Simulated assay, not measured.
Amino acid sequence: MRVRRSDAAKFLSLAASGALVACTHAPGPISMVKPAEFPVAVAPQTASSNGSVFPDATSGSLYEPRRDWRIGDLVTINIVTSATANDTDNASLSRKGTITNTLTSFMGVPLNFGSLNGTPFSPSINAASNQTYAGAGSAAAASNVTGQIEAVITHIDPNGTLALAGRTNVNINGNVTSIVVTGYASPDDIAANTTISSNNVADMNVQYVGNGPINDAHQVPWLQQILSKLWPY
């Protein structure tokens, strides 16, 4: 049985196409940031009773420009944090010492052990030391974060202080950047448009975290980390 050249060429082309299809990986699922659940359970608003205009749980004076904040309300935090630190240390130490002592006689008895070319041998001590140390060190750090984050009131202390917590996620081609902010604020520092500067937030905690291929490129491989700790040179 003879096989035509055209049939053989078709068979080889089909086999090559099948091999390329088998080696080609299907694209994986798109990495998406899932919406987070609301961080706190919001209680229903207390209804007014006896024809009152305001609920019974309302606190503060009616003449003050203060809003009755409740758990679950939203506050916009304007992040304007900036920090710079510099530290320089220089130290130096120098010490020199010299000892010279010659013993020629003891209780009137000369101490010598012969001579060489007219120079007598006698016990003598000569010692010298010289120590020098110099050290220098410096450190510098700077950070600057700006932006706006919508935070949620998660707790209200008995004195009226508000606990805030907010987060924002940005996903660009699988590289996720997250900014998490927590802190405590006074209702008096919140403006009428429900915004507050981060300079007025106590115990301010800003975390800027990245996750994805770009962040992985900045990480030292685990084997290299082990070798750098165990390698003696």
Rank of each mutant, 00 (worst) to 15 (best):
D189K: 00
N78L: 01
P110N: 14
P213K: 09
N169L: 13
R4P: 05
I79N: 07
I149T: 02
P35H: 14
R5P: 01
G28H: 13
N86G: 02
G183A: 11
A142N: 15
P187G: 01
L20I: 15
S17I: 14
M204A: 05
I99S: 10
D188L: 11
P55A: 11
S94I: 08
D7F: 12
V53N: 06
V40C: 02
N175S: 05
S198H: 01
P27C: 07
G160H: 00
V206R: 00
R95C: 00
N117F: 14
L20H: 00
P65G: 02
G114R: 00
N78E: 11
A83D: 12
N169C: 00
F11M: 13
N117V: 08
N200A: 11
K96F: 08
V180C: 04
Y208N: 06
H25D: 13
D157F: 06
T46P: 01
Q148E: 14
T84R: 00
G174R: 01
D87C: 00
R2N: 13
P29H: 06
A47I: 07
S143M: 14
H25S: 12
R95V: 12
S122N: 09
K96E: 07
N50R: 10
M204T: 03
T24A: 13
H155I: 00
I156Y: 03
P35Q: 06
S17H: 04
V3Y: 12
L20Y: 07
A151Y: 01
I196L: 03
N199K: 08
V33S: 06
Y208C: 03
A26E: 09
V152P: 01
N171Q: 10
L162D: 02
L14Q: 10
T58I: 14
P27R: 07
D87F: 08
A191M: 05
C23S: 15
H155P: 00
N171T: 10
T46K: 11
H25V: 14
H218M: 15
V201T: 03
D216G: 09
Q207P: 00
N126P: 01
P110Q: 07
F106N: 05
S124D: 01
G108C: 10
N171Y: 08
G72F: 14
A185M: 06
P213E: 10
T104H: 04
N171V: 09
A165F: 06
V170L: 14
V53F: 12
G183C: 12
S197E: 02
S198E: 02
L62A: 15
V152Y: 05
L74M: 12
P29A: 09
G28A: 14
V42R: 10
T104F: 03
A16G: 13
V75M: 04
T104P: 00
G60Y: 04
R5S: 13
L111Y: 06
P27D: 12
S143A: 15
N171R: 10
P158F: 08
F54K: 06
T24K: 04
T76S: 11
S124Y: 08
L164G: 04
Q207V: 15
V75F: 01
S197F: 04
T119F: 15
N193V: 02
P120R: 05
P158W: 03
F38T: 09
I156W: 07
Q207M: 05
P27N: 08
A142Y: 09
